[in-house]
């Protein structure tokens, strides 16, 4: 059975979420809960690492849309990294690269947060 998992690592003030598996309308609430938990704790610098994500639908993209305004208004950001080409294309088709920092590697995203 296809599954979805989120794990977390904290580096300084940045919360890094590692998402794995299949992110669709069924599993998106798991990611939503995770980000909501961070926001509730006043954590507004979030990096999402897509290295192990195999599939995403617009429900997954909608999670980022749902939080970004609040997070940015609190001086934070959601940055995205390590997408494979299929995942990136979904973001690209909907014009997300103009709205979000999408970096090749996690380290680049961390550097961008700190610059």
């Amino acid at each position: 059975m296809e599954s979805f998992e989120v794990s977390k690592r904290v580096e300084g003030k940045i919360n890094i979420l590692y998402i794995k598996g299949y992110l669709d309308a069924h599993t998106a609430p798991m990611l939503e809960d995770e980000i909501q938990g961070l926001v509730d704790n006043g954590e507004f610098q979030i990096l999402v690492n897509f290295k192990d994500l195999l599939y995403i639908s617009s429900a997954g993209l909608g999670v980022f849309m749902g939080f970004i305004e609040n997070i940015r208004s609190n001086g934070g950001d959601i940055k995205l990294s390590n997408m494979n080409s299929k995942i990136f294309r979904v973001f690209d088709l909907l014009g997300f690269p103009t709205l979000y920092d999408i970096l090749e590697e996690e380290q680049e995203a961390l550097t961008k947060f700190n610059s």
């Binding site: 617009s58 993209l61 909608g62 849309m65 088709l93 909907l94 103009t98 709205l99």
Partner: peptide, 16 residues
Amino acid sequence: KNYLAQMKVGGLGIHL
């Protein structure tokens, strides 16, 4: 593009 710039959620699936 404008729709996304307004950070709205939903309706993306039909465009995809």
